[in-house]
Amino acid sequence: MRALKQHELSLADRLADMAVDALIDEADLSPKPALVDRRGNGAHSDLHLGLMHASALSLWPMFKEMAEAAIEIGRIGLPLREALGRIGREGEQAMLVTTHGVNTHRGAIWALGLLTAAAALHPRAIAQTAAKLALLDDRFAPQSLSHGAQVAQRYGARGAREEAQLGFPSVTQRGLPQLLKSREQNAGEQNARLDALLAIMTELADTCVLYRAGYEGLATMQQGAQAVLDAGGSATLGGRRQLHALDQQLLALNASPGGAADLLAACLFIDRLDGAL
């Protein structure tokens, strides 16, 4: 698809490209604390970078179909919400076939799926549009709760559903502002993206971390991420030392901030869309 010139691609093609690019950029970003990156598999025994790439690429048809559904239906409402739910479930099955049953991007399907559809409808109000879609109930959604939803209920945390319904505040109020701030400080693009991830981690009640390590893991993640930023961020020697310490602490707890990683991908998607506009 990269061989095609930009003007030859439909809007749905371009949005699907941006969604997959965001997932691959998030996976490649290094060094992320306890997450799969170019160094290794982090706190995951069943994941590696090649699998993350393959998973992301397997979702391209799903993102395109979601964008096409939004364009065809043309408005926020139950028909679009239920179409997105159906397409998302089919995309998840295609992902699981590719990964041989490993859950690589289930959370990202929810977040980036909503944002891709929202971008096809109202690209200048993407988070607000995604929130309106997330507030609608899909009558055909499975009744069983995901691990993340179960953990959110157990700990009284804001899960992925609530994050979307609120318009992705971890992205719009934490990740994106930090990304722009670090760029303005000439931190370099990779360091700016790491700082955006850490900013998300400082306040997010990451259900992946809660599932693996409870409150201890969550406090370690949030406080450690803030320590990196307080030391000057990923572009400074002090920040790198704090980042290494956070990585080691989370690995010792077997706690991987997968929810924050999904939201970083959402952050990179919105950033890329803003640049295109």
Rank of each mutant, 00 (worst) to 15 (best):
A125R: 09
A125K: 10
I126C: 00
Q128S: 14
T129V: 05
A130Y: 02
A131H: 04
A131T: 04
L133M: 07
A134Y: 02
A134I: 08
L135Y: 00
L135N: 08
L136A: 10
L136T: 09
L136K: 07
D137K: 14
D138F: 04
R139V: 11
R139Q: 11
F140K: 08
Q143M: 10
Q143I: 11
Q143N: 08
S144R: 14
S144E: 14
S144Y: 09
S144L: 10
S144H: 11
L145I: 02
S146D: 12
S146G: 14
G148W: 02
G148M: 04
A149P: 06
V151K: 06
A152S: 13
A152R: 04
Q153P: 01
Q153I: 05
R154E: 15
R154K: 13
R154V: 08
Y155R: 04
Y155L: 11
G156D: 09
G156P: 10
A157M: 05
G159N: 06
G159K: 04
A160R: 02
R161A: 12
R161G: 02
E162F: 05
E162N: 02
E163K: 12
A164W: 04
A164I: 09
A164M: 14
L166G: 03
G167H: 06
G167P: 07
F168C: 01
F168T: 00
P169V: 13
P169M: 08
P169S: 10
S170F: 05
S170D: 08
T172W: 00
T172A: 03
Q173I: 02
R174G: 01
R174S: 13
G175T: 05
L176C: 06
P177R: 01
P177M: 07
P177F: 01
P177I: 02
Q178I: 00
L179V: 11
L180I: 13
L180Q: 10
L180Y: 01
K181D: 08
K181M: 10
K181C: 07
K181F: 10
R183S: 11
R183F: 05
R183H: 12
R183Y: 11
